[in-house]
Structure formats: structure tokens, C-alpha cells
């Protein structure tokens, strides 16, 4: 289907890191069912390194592909590197997304940051709240 790049279709048809982590160190969920997409990210973190990551996504093809690609991009990386992941990088790694699907890559970035925020909260690590977007009030769902 020409709507999506081969990379998007590959990650949609064969998503990497699907599932949950029962004893996750950080869990992030963004989006809502009303808008038609929800992403949930589970992180396993050891010595500031993301040793495992899983996701579950309710959403369109590009939402599932963005989740898959974003989890691949942070797996094995330090939490500081993961914090620098941008939606643009996710979209580029997927060889681009249609304009009206770019918010899917935004959701992937936000889901990961949300999970990292949860990790910081659980471990009493100080952070700047401005670094974490507030998904509930983003323009996409309004």
C-alpha cells in the first residue's frame, strides 16, 4: 500500500518489542481511546540503561510502527540518551510518515518520556517537569 513507506509497513506487520514487562521500572501511557490511539511503554532499567522495553498500542498502522521503531531506538541506550529521542527521529527512521500521521511519532516520543518520568518518580530522582509534555492537553485530541 503506497500510503506508507516499506519501513512503516515492516514495523507494522512485524512489530518489535510487543508485549508487557510485569516488573517494569517505568510505565508510560499516552493518548486516549476517544482519539483512536493509545500507546503504553514498559521499561526495564538497570544502572541507568534501558535493558528491556515493551509496548502495547491501540491505533493505526503508523501508531504501531512508530511504537515499534521508537522502542528499537531506545533499547540498550542510557536513560539520558532515551530522553533525547525526538518524534522527528522516529519519523525519519521510518523513512517518513504521511503529514496527518506525524502525531503518531509524537505519541511515541511522549510515551517513552512518560515512562521515564514514571521511573524518576518511583525512584525519587529530581527532574525538570518542562521536559515532559502533557499529552492530555495536546492539540491532537482537542
Amino acid at each position: 500500500m503506497a500510503l506508507y513507506s516499506e519501513a512503516v509497513m515492516d514495523h507494522f506487520m512485524h512489530p518489535r518489542n510487543v508485549g508487557i514487562i510485569e516488573d517494569a521500572d517505568g510505565v508510560g501511557e499516552v493518548g486516549n481511546a476517544k482519539c483512536g490511539d493509545i500507546m503504553k511503554i514498559y521499561l526495564k532499567i538497570e544502572n541507568d540503561v534501558i535493558v528491556d522495553v515493551k509496548f502495547e498500542t491501540f491505533g493505526c498502522g503508523s501508531a504501531i510502527a512508530s511504537s515499534s521503531m521508537a522502542t528499537e531506538m531506545i533499547k540498550g541506550k542510557s536513560i539520558h540518551e532515551a530522553m533525547t529521542l525526538t518524534n522527528k527521529a522516529v519519523a525519519e527512521a521510518l523513512d517518513g510518515l504521511p503529514a496527518h500521521k506525524l502525531h503518531c511519532s509524537v505519541l511515541a516520543e511522549e510515551a517513552i518520556k512518560n515512562a521515564l518520568k514514571d521511573y524518576y518518580d518511583r525512584n525519587g530522582i529530581a527532574y525538570d517537569p518542562k521536559e515532559f509534555p502533557d499529552c492530555e492537553h495536546c492539540a491532537h485530541c482537542e
Partner: peptide, 14 residues
């Protein structure tokens, strides 16, 4: 319930 239509269509197309 619990799924989204576009991903359904893409997989059906496959």
C-alpha cells in the same frame, strides 16, 4: 471493541 480500524484494514489487505 479494543482495536482501531486502519490497522485492521491494513492487516486484512495483507
Amino acid at each position: 471493541e479494543g482495536i482501531e480500524g486502519e490497522s485492521l484494514l491494513l492487516l486484512l489487505d495483507a
